[in-house]
Design a binder for these strands. Sequence first.
DNA 1: TACAAGTTTTTTGTATGACAAGCTGGTCAT
DNA 2: ATGACCAGCTTGTCATACAAAAAACTTGTA
Lengths: 236, 236
Amino acid sequence: MTGTYVDDLSVAGQAISLRSLVADRLRQAIVTGRFPPGSQLRERELCELTGVSRPSLREAFRILEAEGLIATAPHRGPVVTAMTVDEVGHLYALRRLLETFAAREFARRRRPEDIVALKRAVKRLDEIEATGSPFELLEAGTTYYSAIAAGSGNPYLAQALGTLHNRIKLIRFISLQKEGRAQGIESLRILGDAIVAGDEEGAERIVSEHLDRIAVLARAIVESGYALPSEPAVTI
Amino acid sequence: MTGTYVDDLSVAGQAISLRSLVADRLRQAIVTGRFPPGSQLRERELCELTGVSRPSLREAFRILEAEGLIATAPHRGPVVTAMTVDEVGHLYALRRLLETFAAREFARRRRPEDIVALKRAVKRLDEIEATGSPFELLEAGTTYYSAIAAGSGNPYLAQALGTLHNRIKLIRFISLQKEGRAQGIESLRILGDAIVAGDEEGAERIVSEHLDRIAVLARAIVESGYALPSEPAVTI
DNA sequence: TACAAGTTTTTTGTATGACAAGCTGGTCAT
DNA sequence: ATGACCAGCTTGTCATACAAAAAACTTGTA
């Protein structure tokens, strides 16, 4: 009867604990710019916003700290991490290494369920390419990258890539609002084709070139202090 | 006057907080086998052992959980992570990807201070190769790998490699007690030479071959349930 | 004896209140 | 204006409490 039922009946990947819920919410708030890089997170304030007690909030802080989203200075509390231009370069260098490997592995393995997930992600991107909001595009892109990571079949690689993506999600979000939104969707489409076709070299090359392109944009965004074009930089 | 003074005057990298001290101690205990894979970590017990309160201990748990050293099931508390044979394969595949990249980057950049640290690490390995205890060899090896990671110049890569190494440190420790201790030190020596000489291809090749070799040993150790040869497997 | 159901005990998850330590910003004197 | 000092606030840590869930134990039954 195996195969009749889904393999995994777990509702949420992790059990529902308050700390993980809080961590999820805070992560979302950080990567979408509600708490911009450099801003302080005060316990009092966040306890009221989230409705949880200090211990639970502080445990959530430790999770986000380990992910690199916040940095905690002693007796000064957590601050949302801000990257320098050099750090963005390093981050994208590592992302390139991991993502080219993931794409190549995906093209080599091609597990059916991973292929299905990938095609679904591409389809979703196609659907909202014209009509979708930047936020919808952001989430669709995240789904796509997760599909690539999962398709590698390597859970450690997938986790490392997930962490990396969280660190650059805000940059992607700004980029989507700044540049023409369809910036790199074409690349994702042809990458999907290459993977489905089992073209390892092609997949690796496409990822490589794609990342080299958007790394330039990312660098520019950090250089301008994570600023959107609409909101003028604070000069006083 | 730049260059006359050291760039970084910070005394301790991280501030001394109880949670980080506790996390350090627990990490050390886990990776040296005091809490073997699969063992449960009870709050009560560890509060007494460490002398800290439950909130501080729980914050330390979240740090170790994010590092993948423990896994927490709801209402059952943290358990020291045990890898399957497949997972070891994935872990070493990722390690190979990251470490070859680090070695290559190191050989390309060759910053003087990194070279000094590397030479010092090799020297230390040479000194204790014959006389040192397995634990000393373990720590010397860790220092060596940290030097490689730091030499890449990429902090994100270094962090990812550090996390990976924590996850396999116990396997290395068992391996050092099991096999002839000088197992792979020769490889580390010639890798150091290649990096110092700026031989990128050579460095990458040496790391690759070295990791392929020890991955086999790691797989065997996990297959046997992290068992040392001296202590017989529990069969009843 | 073996087994199953129910109950007690233990452990985790979370909240509250408390207090020391250290940072921040303002005030005051020079 | 500069520097020292002080009040207020925030974080770091602890002790305690209690609900909920799991684990262990007891008890009754076949």
